[in-house]
């Protein structure tokens, strides 16, 4: 399960400090089935849920500062990815959400100044090779991602690494 280096999607715009509680409420965290989790996205934030459900897929979330605020629940990136969110572009991320996303093959990229360039429904294109995002109102550079992290992202995160470690050990 490698992550695509070039991907396209339709924008849903969000504000600052969108929390993992916003993304998936605590009452659903006993659930591990990805489809079931995806059906409960943003229930605590009805105005976001409504826009997400109306949006064309695949979705790219464009957010402000501190996306993925709060709880460590990995259910959040799993639910987003399963629903059809391909990537999250934000001014900055909270660290546990960022790591959880990488490990589940949800592309998360720090991009400054995106919010001014896009609106809900815009089609945008992320090109990791060129390090850019193309929007209807211009192209924008993405921040530098450390080599260790980009390799992890492109290989599908720790889950894929774990899969290969497990298969090697079982063959030795």
């Amino acid at each position: 399960m490698n992550v695509d280096r070039v991907l396209e999607g339709y924008v849903v715009k969000l504000g600052d400090n969108v929390s993992t509680d916003d993304i998936i409420a605590g009452r659903y965290l006993h659930i591990t089935d990805p489809e079931e989790l995806a059906s409960h996205l943003f229930e605590n934030r009805p105005e976001i849920r409504e826009r997400l459900l109306k949006a064309k897929k695949p979705v790219i979330l464009v957010a402000g500062r501190g996306f993925g605020y709060g709880s460590s629940r990995e259910h959040a990136p799993i639910a987003l990815k399963t629903y059809g969110v391909k990537a999250v572009l934000a001014e900055s991320f909270h660290r546990i959400f960022y790591r959880n996303s990488v490990n589940n093959g949800l592309l998360v990229i720090e991009v400054k100044g995106m919010a001014d360039l896009v609106d809900d429904g815009d089609k945008i294109r992320v090109d990791l090779r060129a390090g850019i995002v193309e929007t209807p109102r211009g192209t924008i550079r993405i921040g530098k991602i450390p080599d260790y992290v980009i390799n992890l992202i492109l290989s599908g995160g720790l889950k894929e690494k774990l899969r290969s470690i497990a298969s090697q050990k079982s063959h030795t």
């Binding site: 591990t32 889950k159 899969r163 497990a166 050990k169």
Partner: peptide, 20 residues
């Protein structure tokens, strides 16, 4: 905790890593 361990167990099952 209870909620994060449940998901960790699912990951171990999916990746075949529970035995190691």
């Amino acid at each position: 905790n209870d909620v994060t361990a449940l998901l960790a167990i699912r990951v171990l099952e999916e990746t075949g890593a529970e035995d190691i």
